[in-house]
């Protein structure tokens, strides 16, 4: 795929500080990241700044990326697995312009990958950093609306209520019907919301060699999973965690072991399954 960054971005826009945020803010975010890495799965509050894009478009992820990016980095940005969607293209161009970094669509070439709702299919390696954009960082929020109470539940490790929600799902649907944002237990201690990635990606978080950073801009929280940290998807002994499977393969590359998107391609309702990870798919064809 052609690189979609602006042609004239080899020179940084000097009207802005390097990587858009001022140095004090970046320092504050780095401190939050260090704390998050030290306590895997714990949500660290930080003073989120206004970013030049709306909440819900990746303000958390973009601040984390801005705080860690340097001139030697190579950035990849994906949105639902795709490198060529509006959100991914604009964030990539933004950093090419304000941080003067090289951008790529190739997963293995990137040092920093900012992602919305997917983990790339290509296995990550040591030294790579995965930055997630998170809408609702609190996994217990839908079960317990009070912030003071959810903090207490985390602090005292009272996670019965999370199990109650899985119980409800089985009682209602006969299986754990949650397919995305599937809660995980990080390092045997904190329950974490893995941002709305499909549960298909949950096993990729477990003991991943890459550093995972999660930024929630609206809620102003940062959390992290350091490399090689155990991440366990919650389940019941008699209803173990399972990932999605498809009867079809990808219509473009024939892959049978990647996450597939279902598309309706004509008015007759003809359906097609294609890989959600465009980089992975294109290079297999």
């Amino acid at each position: 795929m052609p690189d979609t960054s602006l042609p004239d971005t080899s020179l940084r826009d000097s009207a802005y500080n390097y990587a858009y945020l001022d140095e004090q803010t970046k320092r504050m975010i780095r401190r939050a990241i260090l704390k998050a890495v030290a306590v895997p799965g714990y949500q660290v509050p930080f003073g989120g700044r206004e970013m030049p894009l709306p909440y819900g478009w990746g303000t958390g992820g973009i601040q984390v990326t801005a705080a860690i990016i340097g001139r030697d980095d190579t950035l990849k940005v994906i949105d639902q697995g795709a490198d060529d969607t509006t959100n991914a293209v604009s964030i990539r161009r933004f950093f090419a312009r304000v941080a003067d970094v090289a951008t790529t669509t190739r997963t293995e070439d990137a040092t920093v990958i900012q992602t919305r709702h997917r983990v790339p299919e290509t296995p990550l390696s040591d030294g790579q950093i995965l930055v997630f954009q998170v809408p609702i960082p609190e996994p217990l929020r839908m079960l317990e609306p009070r912030e003071t109470e959810t903090r207490t539940l985390h602090a005292l490790r009272e996670y019965g209520v999370m199990q109650v929600s899985l119980y409800e799902s089985i009682a209602r649907h006969g299986r754990i019907a949650k397919t995305y944002n599937y809660p995980v237990l990080v390092n045997g201690r904190y329950i974490m919301s893995p941002s709305p990635i499909p549960k298909f990606d949950n096993p990729k978080l477990d003991r991943s060699p890459a550093l995972q950073l999660y930024g929630a801009g609206r809620e102003k929280r940062i959390y992290a999973v350091p490399p090689h940290t155990p991440v366990k998807s919650l389940d019941f002994d008699d209803h173990p965690f399972e990932i999605e499977t498809w009867s079809e393969c990808c219509a473009l590359c024939g892959s049978r072991d990647s996450f597939l998107d279902e598309m309706i391609v004509d008015d007759a309702g003809k359906r097609l399954f294609v890989c959600s990870d465009t980089d992975y798919c294109e290079r297999r064809r």
Binding site: E158, Y159, G160, Q163, F236, D238
Partner: peptide
């Protein structure tokens, strides 16, 4: 079942 799950019971049945 909530109290049971809170004290670590993990068998749905």
């Amino acid at each position: 079942g909530e109290r049971l799950m809170a004290i670590g019971e993990r068998h749905y049945g």
